[in-house]
Design a binder for these strands. Structure first.
Lengths: 248, 248
DNA sequence: ATAAAACTTGCATATTATTGCAACATGTTG
DNA sequence: CAACATGTTGCAATAATATGCAAGTTTTAT
């Protein structure tokens, strides 16, 4: 069997079955596993599939469809960079969804080994691109407006967790009214997240600061760290600093 | 034998057999391998065939495997249309992930009111575009290769459900070996899904039929409905019909 | 923590390609 | 027809490619 034939065969089959083992291919085509590995390496270099330990995965499944139009994307990237630094190897991290969180996930270093809990479908999708992290999806009813799971089941699952850190993308934060949102179900989930974490980190563009919505999640004093695109010395943030919130 | 005769002969044979070896041609036509190589080079330059190390491949061979993504999508759309009809208002539906399932979700009518359970992140994302359905996300550890949640927690959640119908995108189906897959964790989840449903429906392109993988999910006789892009009368499917599987 | 499986690297070998060249055939032109 | 240009083929030397094996390392699974 010619090399090209083999590679075509491999490609066809990886797209058919999503996953192939080196040993199986070697057996099927009567060549050594070394040859198969070299084929897979080559196909992987050409971006035709994804090589993994033991075999290969189809690319069609694993490819990322990039979010195109995110509001204020540059600010969010700045926030993402700052926030990503807070996560260390071995940590248990609870996260919500939202575009700012998605940006933070993209900013996570490749070699980070940590465990992330989330009920957000877009966040889960983004986490899957990272090779060295574990993802625990929190199940329950999926809210279409917020794209996260909500409900008693989700909340009780969250309460079972003892996380090191909780990173929330937020809707509104006000020095007096604290952290607020407008979806009752989401509020309950976020409350549970805060309760289950040692440390609470909020990620938000400065525009959302000193706005408020109808339902309270927590008070300003309950927040540990606030990450915005602004310099920590910015006057907008000083009232929060005065209330004991660390500014990043 | 004249050069032109040789090249005509080569072209005829490459289209007949899809592949040729330099050594074989040299022997058949009693000319040196150098000459054959020069012929192949020339034909390749004129775009008549594809020259590779050791021989040549026909153009159709190469493009048929390279170009199948489009064909596959069309097949999957046909499958999706057929399968979507099985879901009626008020039903509880368990689904796996996979590209065929995604197509089926896209094919669901706008006015369908039903409840869907899934552990697949891409499927969940797709379901969210539909206005009138409820989605229950099954939580647990997220498997990066299969993009669905796996593990004991997920399985016990699935077992709590009493679904009307279970729709599975599959990896391999063989008349004797039944439904098989290559990921132990995924197999466990799919098994649980089958057990929790009154009716089992498999969605697959015909290419996966009569292939098998390492781990068994269920026997052929345990399948209720098989949906492919083929006509129900296709001879490939008749053995399944004989075993009591309904063909759509 | 340990053993098994999978991977990497370097190397040996065999197969396949390339190149220049000589031999011969074919075709062209005055 | 002779002389010359052109094209084709095979050969030999050399280069490049493909493949398997073995030793040592890394990753994964139990």
């Amino acid at each position: 069997m010619l090399k090209k034939e083999r590679q075509t065969f491999i490609l066809h089959n990886v797209n058919l079955h999503n996953r192939l083992l080196v040993g199986d291919l070697s057996e099927e085509m009567k060549v050594s596993e070394d040859t198969i590995r070299r084929d897979l390496q080559e196909l992987s270099d050409n971006g035709k599939l994804i090589k993994v330990h033991g075999g290969a995965l189809s690319k069609s499944f694993h490819s990322s469809f990039n979010n195109n139009s995110v509001y204020d994307i540059d600010s969010k990237k700045v926030i993402a960079q700052k926030a990503a630094q807070l996560i260390k190897d071995g940590m248990f991290v609870l996260t919500s969804g939202g575009t700012t969180i998605i940006e933070m996930i993209k900013a996570l270093p490749e070699n980070l080994h940590a465990t992330f809990f989330t009920g957000s479908v877009p966040a889960a999708l983004e986490y899957m691109h990272h090779p060295n992290i574990d993802i625990i999806l929190i199940g329950d009813k999926l809210s279409k407006s917020s794209q996260i799971t909500v409900g008693g089941e989700a909340i009780s699952k969250i309460k079972e967790i003892r996380a090191d850190i909780c990173m929330l993308g937020i809707n509104a934060l006000h020095i007096d009214h604290g952290l607020t949102d407008n979806d009752r179900e989401v509020v309950q989930v976020k409350k549970a997240m805060l309760e289950s974490s040692d440390k609470t980190v909020l990620l938000t563009i400065s525009e959302k600061i000193n706005t408020a919505q109808r339902i309270r999640i927590c008070d300003t004093k309950d927040i540990d760290v606030l990450v915005t695109e602004l310099e920590p010395s910015s006057p907008i943030l000083s009232p929060f600093k005065d209330m004991g919130v660390e500014i990043l």
